[in-house]
Each structure stands twice: as structure tokens, then as C-alpha cells.
Nucleic acid binder design. Structure first.
Lengths: 231, 231
DNA sequence: CCATATCAAGAGCACTGCTCTTGACTTTCG
DNA sequence: CGAAAGTCAAGAGCAGTGCTCTTGATATGG
């Protein structure tokens, strides 16, 4: 057992090392990651890397899952102090700062999908951690009667939002789930726009503009400014 | 003159043909466009293509500019009927439908930037056509006293928004310019999210959800529901 | 008419992802 | 303990890529 786990441990270390070097390459060279280049950096033959990742896409998938989890953990670690809009803003800023610090990983998970890549099911649980963090705030606010998302929705969208609401929690009405989901997309869009150069030559006060947007989102969702004490 | 313009015309035709084939390849193979494959499809040597585009990036740049102009023209061609929120929604839907019909071109201009690519100045005039179309609606609404964007902004962001407002028109206050800009980013984010798979396994009524979002955006900008006659 | 500019084609370089084979090493089991 | 089986690293090799350079053909303009 010990011996077997030893080899497994070496393998795990090697896998992590490859991912680490790949991340470094990703940070400098951008999205076109070269498997041969990381192998060269590791001092081994390119064919040896294929024992750990069956293809370049598989390496990218591993990095993507790590990025989802890293970002998700960052969002979940935000302390929940102050009013609900303040909590919302705190998570938004945490997500933005993670994105600013990990531009290429953000581009990998939320930018244009890489051509041949198909997201395996392993990613979806990691991918939903941020939006679930946001949903938890809205759920608590709604349970406290401090989230008002306006008129109910009708039509075919109502069913979709009903399903989404069931994930968010019992206090979340479909229209509130819809606005929460849309709010997450607005957060996502605001960050992507900033990162992908949409604000160049236009907005210099990036953080202020981002907060300007997210305040609007929070008020649209209907989060009210009443404070909250923890315990 | 005739002879010279003949060769110039042939060159222009050849350039267009290369772009057309490249667009076809882009639609099928995705973002990793192969110059050699395009040359093969055209029945000529790959080196010959370099007489028309100095590099693959230059070909991509040409396609990007065309995409910006195509999308911009689509947005500008939307008839301006009905109330201001209706006009806003009409442009939003037109942009979305263009994006759905030209996924890869949308990804090229609004997705993660391609690694070595730097946007030349030629693109910025074409790139701003959509947001200027939106700004024109807001400007007209504001001039008619039918756009209320809430409290003025303060701090360093105010200067940025003042400059943005000067592009939008005299009736647009800085905070209104900010919300218009943010509204454009929300439109952009909503479309990118739909196209890039963020809505998979969640929202099936895509068009309805999009309209749900853009109605929220329009109301946040403060566009009022009063109708408008075009004389 | 002839010098000049433009063009298409091919060879070639360095790089990529990926496969296959070979040889060394480790684990497992009879 | 020793042989069989599994795991691993390395190298060669294939097909593809962007891009450069050279060569020869063609068209343009003085």
C-alpha cells in the first residue's frame, strides 16, 4: 500500500508540477499553450507529458477546473458583513480582483470557448460556485423580506426560472432568480469588458465604474439597504 | 489609368475572395484560422496569400473590422419606431440576432482577445458604431425629458463619464452616459453569456430571458414608456 | 522595347500536437 | 526470489502550422 501510494503521490506531484508550469506559460504567452514548451521547461520529453494528460485539451480542462474552484473559493471566502447590497458588492469586488490577478484564467473560463473544447461534466459543479454564492445572498435577503424583484414573469421563461429558483432556495421567487442570474451575467460582462479592452480610451476609473455598475445591478435585483447583524 | 486600376481591381477582388474563404473557415473550424488551409481552398500556394495579408493577424484584423462594420450597420439599420424602451429593445434584439448568426465573428470582436493581436486604430471608429446607436436613442429620450438616470456621480469617475457624455450628445448627463455605457456592456455580456455557453443546462427560453434582461437595463437607464411619433 | 514592379510558386525553417516504438524501471504475484 | 506485468521517459517520426526567401513568370510604365 505504501509503495503504491508512493508512486501515486509522485504522479500527483508531477501532475501538479505540469499544471503549475502550464499556468506560468499561460500567464505570459496567453491562451495558445504549447505542451512542448512546458515539457521543455520541465526538462523532459514532450511525449512524457502525455502520460499525465492525454491531450492539450485535457491539460486545459484541468486548468479550467482549477480556475473555477479557485475563483469559487475566493467568492465563498468573502465575509458576509453589512447590508445585503454591501455583501453583494463585496463578492463582486472579490471576483473582479481575482479576475484582474488571473486574466488568462478568466479568459479561459469565461471568454470565447477554445475551438475543439467541450466542457466535461466535472466542471459544472465547480463552475456554479460563484453564482451560488451570489444566490445565497439574495436568498437570505429574500427570506428577510429585503429583496423585491418586481413583477412575476410569465411565458416559457417562467419554467426555466422556476427551476433556477429551486436551486437558489425557498424564498427566491422565479423573477428574483431571473434577476439574480442576470445580475451574475452583468458582473461577468462588466469584468470581461474591462479585461478584454472594451473600456480602453474611455474609462480610466475602472474600479469606480465597476462599482457604479454593480450598485445598479444590486438595486435592480431589489436588495434593500437595511443592515444585517451576524448572530 | 485603366490598366492600373484593372490590376488594382483584381487585387481587391482577390483580397475579398481571401476574406470570404477565411470567413467560411472561421465559421466551421472556429478561431484557429489556418492561412494555409485558406490558400489550399483557393487553389494557390500559401506564400501567395502573404502578398495580400502580411500575416495571419492582419487577415484577422481585416475580418474584425468587417465584422464591426457589419454589426454596426445592422444596429444602425434598425427602424426607430415606438417608445424609447421599444427602440432600445429593437436594437438589442438586432444585435443579438446578428451575433447568433455570426457566432465566431462575435467571439472575435468581443471574446477573449487573440494572443498576439493588438487592435489598430482603424478599428475604433468601426467598433463604436453600436454603442453610438444606443447612445443616440438615449440622447433623444433625454432631450425629450424621458430619460432619468438617477443621482449624479461624483469622484474620479465623473470626469470619465463627462467625456463619454460629450460624445453622446448635449442632453446626456454624465450619470446617464455611465448607465448607457453600462447598458451596452450588459447587452454585450448577455449575448456573450448565451453564445459562450453560460446558459447551458439552465435557460432554454433564450430570447425571452434576453428580453427580460434588456428590459431591466432599459428601465435602469431610466427610459420611460411614453411613445414617440416620427412625424 | 526594356527596365521595373508585381505576382505565384516552391523549398525550407522552426514550431506545434500527437503517435509509436524502444528501453529502463518498478510493482506484483507465483 | 525471480519472472511477468505494469508504468514511465525518451526519441523518432508524421502531418500540420506561420512565415521567409528565392526563382521564374507576367504585367506596368517610361
Amino acid at each position: 500500500m505504501k509503495a503504491a501510494s508512493l508512486r501515486a503521490r509522485i504522479r500527483a506531484e508531477m501532475t501538479d508540477e505540469i499544471k503549475a508550469v502550464a499556468l506560468r506559460h499561460l500567464a505570459t504567452d496567453g491562451a495558445n499553450l504549447s505542451l512542448r514548451a512546458v515539457a521543455r521547461d520541465l526538462g523532459m520529453a514532450s511525449s512524457a507529458v502525455y502520460r499525465y494528460f492525454a491531450s492539450r485539451d485535457e491539460l486545459l480542462t484541468a486548468i479550467i477546473i482549477d480556475a473555477y474552484d479557485h475563483l469559487g473559493a475566493t467568492a465563498e471566502a468573502v465575509p458576509r458583513d453589512g447590508s445585503y447590497p454591501e455583501q453583494w458588492l463585496a463578492v463582486c469586488h472579490a471576483v473582479r480582483e481575482w479576475a484582474l490577478a488571473n486574466v488568462h484564467q478568466w479568459a479561459l473560463i469565461y471568454g470565447s470557448p477554445v475551438p475543439g473544447y467541450q466542457a466535461p461534466n466535472d466542471t459544472i459543479s465547480s463552475a456554479t460556485r460563484v453564482v451560488l454564492t451570489l444566490a445565497r445572498i439574495v436568498q437570505d435577503a429574500a427570506a428577510a423580506g429585503q429583496a423585491d424583484a418586481g413583477e412575476p414573469v410569465t411565458g416559457p421563461l417562467a419554467e426555466d426560472l422556476q427551476a433556477v429558483a429551486s436551486f437558489a432556495g425557498p424564498a427566491v421567487a422565479p423573477q428574483l432568480a431571473g434577476r439574480t442570474m442576470a445580475g451574475w451575467l452583468q458582473l461577468n460582462g462588466a469584468i470581461s469588458a474591462e479585461l478584454f479592452g472594451q473600456l480602453n480610451n474611455t474609462i480610466t476609473a475602472r474600479r469606480e465604474f465597476f462599482e457604479f455598475q454593480m450598485r445598479g445591478t444590486a438595486s435592480w435585483i431589489g436588495l434593500s439597504e437595511v443592515g444585517l447583524r451576524e448572530s
